[in-house]
Design a protein around this nucleic acid. Sequence first.
RNA 1: GGAGGGGUGGCAGAGUGGUUGAAUGCGGCGGUCUCGAAAACCGUUAUGGGCGUUUUCUCGUCCAUCGAGGGUUCGAAUCCCUCCCCCUCCGCCA
Length: 421
Amino acid sequence: MLDLRAIRDDPAPARAALARRGFAEQLDELLALDARRRELLPEVEGRRAQQNEASDGIAARKRAGGDASDLIERMKALSVELKGMQAELSEVEQRRDALAATLPNLPHPEAPDGGEDDAVVLREVGERPSFEFEVRDHLDLGIEHGWIEVEQAAAASGSRFAYLLGDLVMVELALVRFAVELVRAEGFEPIVPPVLVREGPLYGTGYFPAEREMIYEIERDELFLIGTSEVPLAALHADQILEAEALPRRYAGISTCFRREAGAAGKDTRGIFRVHQFDKVEMFSFVAPGESSAEHQRILGIEERILATLEIPYRVVEIAVGDLGAPAARKFDCEAWIPSQGRYRELTSCSNTTDYQARRLGARFRPQPDVAPAVVHTLNGTAVAIGRTLIALIENGQRVDGSVVLPPALVEAGAPERIGA
RNA sequence: GGAGGGGUGGCAGAGUGGUUGAAUGCGGCGGUCUCGAAAACCGUUAUGGGCGUUUUCUCGUCCAUCGAGGGUUCGAAUCCCUCCCCCUCCGCCA
């Protein structure tokens, strides 16, 4: 949600920013609705004031034992008139709010123009392994060693589901342990959130109404399966006013994530790269508005450190404006080298959503005692997306005999040194 | 799942149709007193929105908000409906 009041005062910068995302006309429409509301509102309120005053008069007369029927008669007419005006007002407000809900965040000035193919590569880090043998992909190795079972998963749950077994499960547990300990040392409090949420948090984080198709819905209970723990983590401080000292507030959510992958038919159908269910450790920060850019870099730095420590070759790309999710003002992806595909693929990602989610969620803070509350800024970033990280570890760490050597940092966290030997 | 009880200001807790945005107490903040502190006393104590005022800080005024939404009424914290949440007992359950 955008800061409508600020935009009203000075619409040009917001219009220019939204034009980069193709939403300039919608903004004009929104401003028109807002103007109409502000025409109607004083009229409604004036009549309400009149009504309140008359009501006091009626009460006073009745207390004095007098008759107020003439006043009541007059107020009946006013009441009818007021109801009509209120109906018009609330219709305008509903249209305004519905439109406001669909507008995306203002992009950061440094976010590059363009769409999906216009991400800017910022740097490549780590050495891609060279293999003296035919590279095998994670599914091939996974099936051979009994780490991954997809056929029975398809029978049990459908396509894009998988069983993970044996050593690979131990690697998953080590990955979670490694990631949580690392980010905890950076001030992110470990947290296991609910994976089922109501509509409110999804709306608040900006997944609704735009991306409703991506979310599993449990209609009977009006609950939704989260696609990322970002959703319940953001909701943790919804409708709260935090003290300034409480910021920054950082969480490391550990959860399973569920995605319908609607519209991804035929894409990444092999293996566990794109599945309906995976586990993930997610960073989420609530910060003061002036801090969000620095926090964004900080989160990106942690993501890079995790990949480097896991000895996964990666590159960092900055996402172009046209490919940003609605709530994001700016976003970086870390892409890992996937040998079987001979290219970098998205492994982690971090977004600065500035005040967009916070305003929708009502997450505020008091900059100083006795000062009006202000909206916080929120950011999110992947610490470890387990499934895709397993792919990168398996494929980059494979040996000629089909075994996989794991990085020391993971072994320290409880993983075997080598699996499939 | 069944039965019952409740949601009021930071907290506790009055209030069943008319000066109740809301008594009272506690807490917080400011002040008086004091060498200082405590006690006592006085004052103050929310959020959102509109309009006006202001260069900013501000101030004034009106409207809304007693879990949420709708309804009845001239008028709703108070009456009715739907939903949400919490508590107690029974059942079930990792």
